[in-house]
């Protein structure tokens, strides 16, 4: 999730990526077999407070700008209308309604301060929502050492980002110092059949020292290494990262909803699992 700038430059980095990614699609040597943390969303009515905290509001409290700095339109709440656990699923629902001066409501949960990791396999099984201007994400953000460090120095790994109007495409991206926002390192995965908004798909990274592999349904579609960031600093070998799940409405990445965007829109999460890297 780009907290500040211009995804209109995304195309540039895509092209950069295409030239480099193809070299790195070799089968990784590392394995991630030990489950160390998971939420299967099989009990309770709301996300477990042992696993998750809520981000309430527009994102201003973290990044100092409303709309997460992306011109997003939603107000995040912890109401059951926006987030609940039901039928073994986490449901995050974006709604069109006036709430706290915003035109839309949704929800965002984080493991920040509860569980944070360095390296591992992070995976989630998700059925995505649909519609112009809907922007769900499953992502990791680096710890800011109680405010001692700031984005993008802390590092960001977007395991899955998606535009509701492109229901067969997802994007995997990293942000760090010198390669953030419009210059982030990114690639996309396009389904050859089916759609992300009609069925569950598993989105994952396998992350170890000096590499991050991006998967959709166990298909490796991108590997990012320090080579890809060139002379810029690789910030993914030391810091600990926490998981974020959210559905944004509007913003530079997905554009804005229009009259044809059906509301409400719900992201269904069957599970989130973290495996540690085998030694």
């Amino acid at each position: 999730m780009n907290p500040t700038f211009l995804h209109s430059f995304l195309l540039v980095t895509v092209l950069v990526c295409i030239t480099t990614c193809t070299d790195n699609n070799s089968e990784p040597d590392n394995s991630f077999t030990t489950l160390v943390w998971s939420d299967e969303f099989n009990s309770g009515d709301s996300p477990s407070s042992e696993n998750w905290i809520f981000d309430i509001g527009t994102g201003e409290e973290i990044f100092g700008q409303p709309g997460w700095g992306n011109n997003e339109l939603q107000y995040y709440t912890n109401r059951s209308e926006n987030i609940r656990v039901r039928n073994g699923m986490l449901e995050i629902t974006a709604r069109e309604e006036s709430f706290q001066n915003s035109g839309y409501t949704s929800a965002k949960i984080l493991t920040r301060g509860l569980e944070e990791w360095t390296f591992g396999r992070f995976e989630a099984s998700i059925q995505l929502p649909f519609g112009q201007g809907i922007w769900p994400a499953f992502w990791l953000l680096g710890d800011d050492s109680d405010g001692m460090e700031i984005w993008p120095q802390i590092g960001e790994i977007d395991i899955m980002e998606y535009r509701g109007q492109q229901p067969t495409e997802v994007h995997g991206t990293i942000h760090g110092p010198g390669y953030s926002a419009g210059e982030a390192i990114t690639d996309k995965y396009v389904l050859s059949s089916g759609r992300f908004d009609t069925e569950f798909h598993v989105f994952a990274i396998e992350w170890g020292p000096d590499f991050i592999d991006f998967y959709v349904d166990d298909v490796l579609y991108n590997t990012i290494t320090p080579e890809d960031v060139g002379s810029d600093e690789w910030v993914f070998n030391d810091n600990s990262f926490y998981i974020i799940l959210n559905v944004a409405v509007g913003g530079w990445f997905a554009g804005f909803p229009n009259d044809n965007t059906p509301f409400p829109q719900t992201m269904l999460v069957d599970y989130v699992r973290v495996y540690e890297m085998d030694n």
Partner: peptide, 16 residues
């Protein structure tokens, strides 16, 4: 209903 449209540049979009 929503259909997938393949664009000449290899990207996709959808159309109601």
């Amino acid at each position: 209903s929503n259909t997938i449209v393949e664009l000449p540049d290899g990207t996709t979009t959808s159309r109601d």
